[in-house]
Every structure is written in structure tokens, then in C-alpha cells.
């Protein structure tokens, strides 16, 4: 579904992505772990070209990622994205947030888009918040709305860029539950996160990044019980003992 080959990216002098080769099969749930600054968010953001790359090839559903323009917009419509800071449209109600892109981008009739929007809000458990503005919701509710907004486009793959990092601890689970549900239904997902519980529970595959490189690529079980590289051992040592 997603294929990256020999992808390189620099931020000035910083080499953030070093020869990334990655293939995510349809229906697979891939969790990307790594210390901060390891390039995992950047990796996630290159897949729908929110970050352009210096060289290499990225394919989504067999199509090479086009340069800026209408083609790219069309491809982005098929790739759902959930951000760390939610990024719900602040001047639109929750239901408008969910129905807006189907109406404007997919040209779905308004009534139909809102009906489907309500179903999705129902599913993430915030249908009763439909007429509120994002700022009136808790972080967990906002992130669930953001997931519903991405799902409204019926994406082929979902990207999650640290979806729970900005949440209060008691709200993390309500978001992870929605994500676990999606994973069970067979959605193709690439999740950048620090939630080890989610990685163990829902991931088919764990990728460990450090200094812009993919250091390990294995199943959650073998990664958590028997990490091969020193960098992964060091990382796990730091997060699992605190």
C-alpha cells in the first residue's frame, strides 16, 4: 500500500531520513518507535508530502507521489492523517469538520456527507458534541473527532503522527481504543507513537528508528523481548523502567 525506496531528506545540515526503505502491506498496522529527533514524524509526514523529500521514491497504492498540484491533492484525499495537535478547523463545528472535506473535495451531497459524518461521530463516541466548536471539547474528544474527519474521506491508509502525545493521561485510552478498533477492521495504518501498550496490542510490525535510519523492523513480540541493536536496547531501557 505504501512503498518508500531510498528516501533521503535533509533539514539544512541535519540528515533526518537516511536511505529509508519501507513497504507497508494492505491491512498492516505498523508502529514506528524511536527517540525524539529520530525522524519518525518526518517519515510519517513525507508519505502525503507534507514534507517533501530530497531524493528517492514514495508510492501510495501503486502510484508514485506526484509533485505539488491537483494530482497530489487527489492522492492526499485517499491518505488519512491524524496530527499530534488535532488541527480541527477552529471556525467549524464538529459535524462541519467531519463533513467538510467530503463535500468540498469529493463533491458528496451535503445531506449524505452529514449522515455519514454522524455515523462516524457515533462510532468514535462523540455524536452528542456535533454542534460544538473544537475549542469546547476535551483533547481526547478533539482527537476522536479528528480521526472521524480523516475516516470520512474513506482513506486507503491512515497516518497517525503521535496522536496521543498532546493528551492528558486519562484521555489517552479513549483515543487508543478507537485506533485499536480500526486496526481490527483491517485498516492499513502507520502509527508514530510512544504508546508501547498499543504497539504490543494492535501492531503487526514495529519499526525502530534512530538518527534518521530504520534500525529494526520486526514483530512487536520480538522487538520488545529481544531487541537486536544496542540503540533499541538503550531506548527500551529508558522507557520501560521509568
Amino acid at each position: 500500500m505504501v512503498r518508500m525506496s531510498a528516501v533521503e531528506k535533509h533539514f539544512g545540515d541535519l540528515h533526518v531520513l537516511r536511505t529509508i526503505n519501507l513497504e507497508v502491506a494492505s491491512g498492516q498496522v505498523v508502529v514506528v518507535l524511536g527517540p525524539s529527533g529520530s525522524g519518525k514524524s518526518t517519515l510519517c509526514r513525507t508519505i502525503n508530502r507534507l514534507e517533501p523529500i530530497d531524493s528517492g521514491v514514495i508510492e501510495v497504492d501503486g502510484k508514485v507521489l506526484p509533485a505539488e498540484g491537483r494530482e497530489l491533492a487527489r492522492l492526499r484525499a485517499d491518505v488519512g492523517m491524524v496530527f499530534q495537535s488535532f488541527n480541527l478547523f477552529a471556525h467549524k463545528t464538529i459535524l462541519e469538520n467531519v463533513a467538510l472535506a467530503p463535500i468540498k473535495v469529493r463533491k458528496t451531497p451535503k445531506a449524505e456527507a452529514e449522515k455519514r459524518g454522524m455515523e462516524l461521530l457515533e462510532r468514535v463516541g462523540i455524536a452528542n458534541q456535533r454542534d460544538k466548536y473544537p475549542a469546547q471539547l476535551s483533547g481526547g474528544q478533539q482527537q476522536r473527532a479528528a480521526i472521524a474527519r480523516a475516516l470520512a474521506m474513506r482513506p486507503k491508509v491512515m497516518l497517525f503522527d503521535e496522536p496521543t502525545s498532546a493528551l492528558d493521561p486519562e484521555m489517552v485510552n479513549e483515543v487508543l481504543d478507537v485506533m485499536t478498533g480500526l486496526a481490527k477492521e483491517g485498516m492499513t495504518m502507520l502509527v508514530v507513537t510512544h504508546e508501547m501498550g498499543f504497539a504490543r496490542r494492535a501492531a503487526h510490525r514495529v519499526i525502530f528508528m534512530s538518527d534518521g535510519e530504520i534500525v529494526e523492523d520486526s514483530t512487536p513480540d520480538s522487538f520488545f523481548t529481544a531487541p537486536k541493536s544496542d540503540r533499541a536496547k538503550d531506548f527500551l531501557g529508558k522507557i520501560l523502567t521509568h
Binding site: N48, L50, A73, R74, A77, G80, L88, A101, V105, M153
Partner: peptide, 8 residues
């Protein structure tokens, strides 16, 4: 960014 990611 959110808007571009949705295909606008």
C-alpha cells in the same frame, strides 16, 4: 496542513 492532508 490538516486541510491539505484532506485533499484541499
Amino acid at each position: 496542513e490538516a486541510s491539505r492532508a484532506l485533499g484541499f
